[in-house]
Computed example of a mutant assay.
Amino acid sequence: MPAIGVVLFPGFQIMNLAPLTVFEFANLERGDAFYDVTFLSEAGGLIRTSIGLVIETEPFSGRRFDTVLVVGSIQVAPSAPGLIDRLRETAATARRVAATCTGAFLLAEAGLLDGRKAATHWAHARALRRLHPSVMVDDDRIFVSDGNVWTSAGMTAGIDLALALVEDDLGAGMSKGIARKLVVYHRRTGGQSQFSALLDLQPRSDRIQKVLAYARGNLRNALSVEELAEAARLSPRQFSRIFREETGQSPAKAVENLRLDAARTMLEDGRHSLDTVAQETGFADRERMRRAFLRAFGQPPQVIKRNARHHEAVPIT
């Protein structure tokens, strides 16, 4: 029975516990208590989350865990030296170590990320790089595994990490079944970007939001200014002015970013040819898509597709 020790500390963010549902459902799918989850803290007792929920924990006791999972917090601050010492000791006997969100900072403080690749919430990646220069921070990945150390980006990315851990233990079929039960995408590859074109735009008005939804659902169309303006029920000139005011981008640039977002997702999924991706996302041909990818990502679509395939094919130990 793989024992999972979840390391908590005062003020941690409760979303970091969402990945534990993946292990719970693995037990339900198997019909036995395959995973045994224990909450740990430096001194044991009640630990309060950032929103006020209180959780009972056990103190570190020298018990050996298969997996040690460290949670994160909204505000990053130096950890208690005692906690870092206990974490370092417990991790030394674990088969693997993982951290969600800013939990990577605790792993770094314990020296567990020295010389390793690691992910964290994009908003804190620069700080992790500055405070711990020996860590190779990847500020764009959903999750990263380097040897027996796994780290994820912020918030829901921890669920992707947990699904990957279950897949590592029990196979892709189990992980896929759990994802379906949880109604989540199965599963975003570790190489998938944390960023979304729609999130970057964030228009203020419902009118422009509806236009973006229209564009996202009709990427095969030309999506000219005239077509988008008609969807917004505005003149092309008025639409272009309002669109730029609300999003900070021209309609043409926003449409290209939406196409890139969709194309990258399809490439990372790995089931589509380059020609199909180009057609489905409105680039029309591979060469136009290649030029757009080079401008945006500095690498052609073939490289992104190959990297995603490599991530899925190579077993992680």
Rank of each mutant, 00 (worst) to 15 (best):
P2Y: 09
V6L: 12
G11C: 05
F12T: 00
M15L: 14
N16C: 09
A18N: 08
V22L: 07
E24G: 12
N27Q: 08
T38V: 13
E42Y: 09
G44W: 11
I47K: 04
R48A: 15
S50C: 11
V54C: 14
I55L: 15
S61A: 15
F65M: 07
T67M: 09
I74F: 02
A80W: 04
D85C: 06
A98S: 06
T100F: 06
F105P: 00
L106G: 05
G111D: 11
R130M: 07
D139W: 00
F143L: 12
D146A: 06
S152M: 03
A157G: 05
A157W: 01
I159H: 00
E167M: 03
D169W: 01
M174C: 10
S193Q: 08
D206L: 11
I208K: 01
L212P: 00
A215K: 02
G217D: 11
L219I: 04
R220A: 11
A222S: 11
V225D: 13
S250H: 10
V255W: 06
E256G: 15
E268M: 07
A278L: 11
Q279C: 07
F283Y: 08
D285T: 09
E287P: 01
L294T: 02
Q299V: 07
R306H: 07
R309E: 13
H311M: 08
H311K: 04
P315I: 06
